[in-house]
Design a protein around this nucleic acid. Structure first.
Lengths: 134, 134
DNA sequence: TTTAATTCCTACCAATTTACTATGATTAGT
DNA sequence: ACTAATCATAGTAAATTGGTAGGAATTAAA
């Protein structure tokens, strides 16, 4: 039960973009790579996931880059992690139609744990995180 | 961020042992394998982890087997999962001395999330789980 | 209009981890 | 002695992780 590197790096990127949010200008992967210490090519893939989840927007071409498409006061850590970490699903058997579904003693537990984790992570905004104000 | 099969199977075993607890007799791997649908040899390894954590005890030799060494009213899901799931650590960087420790924006977050998960899982006893009384 | 800077797309890959299987030693009840 | 059981440890195929790589598409600037 480990967070992937994508989850960790995705948060780093989100924090960088959050710090830059008020300037209303883009940050490119090269800059983000330097800030986070993660290779550009790997970051591209991670940011692609965040784009797909509509929490970052991109400007293509020269002098392009990325910025948050949501105000960091309203963007939660949960939203970021769900974007990059395969929905944060704790077990596969919740959404797949597991054969033992009806009689599984743990199913309910996984569900509640999942809710618990998400509701905690959704209380923390990117602003709070970047100010280490948890 | 997925629970391993060991975590799932470990819970199944714990539930079986909990249901058998009042009888004060052992269950052997063969029986547990039938009850859970997991191979005997794999279960042996999982149960070994629970033994090491002192939540199950074994009797060797003929007519031996396993039983809970803690009353299922007092044994929590958290204890079981931590026994089989490498302490449930959410990220490695918490206990390892990560180079960026002092300046890592996420460190505090992982810590709190870890506490959150554990404190939830420690509110649920094996008795509750086996009666689906969450 | 060319060039350079950038994102986007997708294929590939090595190393690690997972989820077992396999073999046999050890222990103890009958 | 025999048999039923746990204990210890090694091996292994498949999946996942954590990237690398190459180049196409887009756009601002020269």
């Amino acid at each position: 039960m480990k967070m992937s590197s994508k989850a960790r790096y995705g948060l780093y990127v989100a924090v960088e973009l959050a710090k830059n949010y008020s300037k209303n200008e883009c940050l490119n992967v090269s800059t983000l790579s330097q800030a986070t210490g993660v290779t550009e090519k790997y970051l591209e893939q991670i940011i692609a996931l965040m784009k797909k989840a509509d929490i970052v927007s991109a400007t293509r071409g020269a002098s392009g880059g990325y910025k948050l498409s949501v105000c960091p006061d309203e963007l939660t850590v949960g939203q970021v992690l769900r974007a990059v970490e395969d929905n944060l699903e704790i077990v596969d058997c919740l959404h797949s139609d597991c054969a033992q579904r009806s009689k599984c003693v743990a199913r309910n537990l996984w569900n509640k744990l999942y809710e618990n984790i998400n509701s905690y992570l959704d209380t923390i905004t990117l602003t709070q995180l970047s100010e280490d104000n948890l």
